[in-house]
Each structure stands twice: as C-alpha cells, then as structure tokens.
Amino acid sequence: MTGRSFNWTHLVACLLVGVTAVLLSFGALVTTYEAAMAVPDWPGTYGHNLLLYPWADWLQGPWDLFLEHGHRLLGALAGMVTLVLAAVAWRSSARPMVKWLAMAAVALVVVQGALGGARVLLDDKTVAKVHACTGPLFFAVAVAIACLSRRSSEQGTRLSRLPVALVVASYLQLVAGAQLRHLDAAVSPSVFRGLVGLHILGAFAVTVFAVASASSVGIDGSLSSRRWSRGIVALVVLQLLLGLGAWVVSWGMPAGLVPESWLSEPLRARSVWSAMVVTGHVVLGMLILASSVVLAIDAGGWRAVTSASAAGSSSQSRAFA
C-alpha cells in the first residue's frame, strides 16, 4: 500500500468479507433445510450454466432450489472477488503477508468450490463435513486480509497469544459443530454423545479464552481492542444461549431444566423460528471467529506499536508476541 494512494486491497478485502458472510449464511441455511441435493448436477444448475440459470426460475422456484442455487451463485461471486483481491494485492505494495494470504484465499476458494461440487456429485456427508470446515477457514483468511491490509506495514504483524487461542478454539468449535450438523443417521448414540460432549467442551474453551482475552486487552490493549474483546464476550454469551436454543427447538427442553407445565405446545418441525435459531447459532459462531481474528491482529498490532515506542526504535515484524 502506498502511503497516499487509495487502498484498493483493503476495499476489495472488505467486499470479500461481506460476500463471504452472506455466502456462509446461505450455506448454513442449506444445511438447516437439507437442501444440498436440491440441484443434482454441478457445476451447472439443472443443465444450465450456473450464471445463466433463469433468474425468475430461481427466485420463484422451490425454497430448497433458491437456497442451493443462491449458495452457488454467492460462491461464484466470492471466487471472483477473491481473484480480484489477489490481483490487486499482488500488484499493490501491500505487505508480503497480505499477498500470500490473498494467494491462500484463492487456493481455499478453489478447493472449497470443488468440495461443494464433490458433495453434490458424490452425495457424501463426509465431504459435506469437510466443506463445512473449509468455509469458516476461508472466512477467517478474508477477515485477516481485510485487517492487515488496513494498516501500514510499519505496524508489524504481531499476534496476541490469547486472542490467537480464541481464534483456534472458535474454529475448532465450528469444526465440532459441523460434525453435529452433518451427522450421519447411522452413527451410534455413543458417538453423538461424544460429539455433543466435545462441542460443550469447546463452548467452555471459547468462553474462557474470550473472557481471558478481554481481561488481557483490558489491561494493556488499545481502545479498539478493548471494544472488540468486550463485543466478543457479548457474542459468546449470546452464542451460549443460541446453542441451548438450538437444542431446545430441535429436541425439546432437556429433562428437568424447566417444569413441563411451562411448555405449552409440541415442538414444530421445519418452523421458521427453529430454522432461524439453529442457523443463527452457526452464523454467530462464524462471527465470533471473524471477530477473534480482528482482535488477534488488532491487539497484536497495538502491542507491536507500544513496544516499539517504548524501545524508541522503529517497528519490527515478528510472527508472535
């Protein structure tokens, strides 16, 4: 990035973050409504080129088709934006890390698109799980590019340990969630019990790291880091409630949690409310991951600047504080 020229890399990266957020939300809805096989061919849609499928048929067609084809269109858009980002980043004077992350994003988006295709052509749940794990990874990379391309290269690329741990825990929690969401109905109750236990353990870890990060940056962090960290804690609290809500709308209130007399109606399969709660839980998980990436970079950058100032020397770049 040149000092005075317009920061195109940052602009395109922000656009990619926005597109990816919508793309992942569509993907989460596809899983919630089990609409992945609403379009049996790939890369086309019912014999049409993906981009040339009639818009009216898509918008006025069945809900499952709307979700699946919409997810594919957004995927194509995300792919194109990623290519533009890579080109812009490579041609600009962005820091090397941004350039390499942009290249990684290209690789990830290609793999992710192919995984989406394989999921459909093979109709395989294992591929679906991998597809669901790669999506948030791509999102995290896009957010990292957006953050790193915003700053001048003099600010360094330090990362704070606790927020990095939060990033890792948030991502692994999404991985565990993907195993539950794409559960094969043939697995035994003990496997499911193990996965639920893992997911609850993950929730505990994310909560601990979120609170620890907030208290850490609350002591020596910048104003923006403090805001991000508090925001993440709030999101985690909301996420815990949504997690409980996702269980309740799927399988009812856990026995003994509330008196039965409080429940007035049976559960309703396929209600919009339950779909929103379950999908919201996934989307919020991705937002927590994205926010953690921002915090890790922001807090690390601040520490780099402050430590550089304290030393009275020019900034330096290190991988981890």
Partner: peptide, 27 residues
Amino acid sequence: MRQSSPSHRFVAAIIAIVTVAAVGCGK
C-alpha cells in the same frame, strides 16, 4: 435434466478422495 459429465465426476471424486484421505476418514 442434464447429467454431470464424467470429467466433472472424476475431478470431484479425486478432490473428495484426497480431502477425505487428508482428514483421515472414509466416505
């Protein structure tokens, strides 16, 4: 409805196999 071409299926299968092998679980 158009069926996906064999080449698409082949590419998809290769990617799936590599990925599945990478994560250590089967189809």
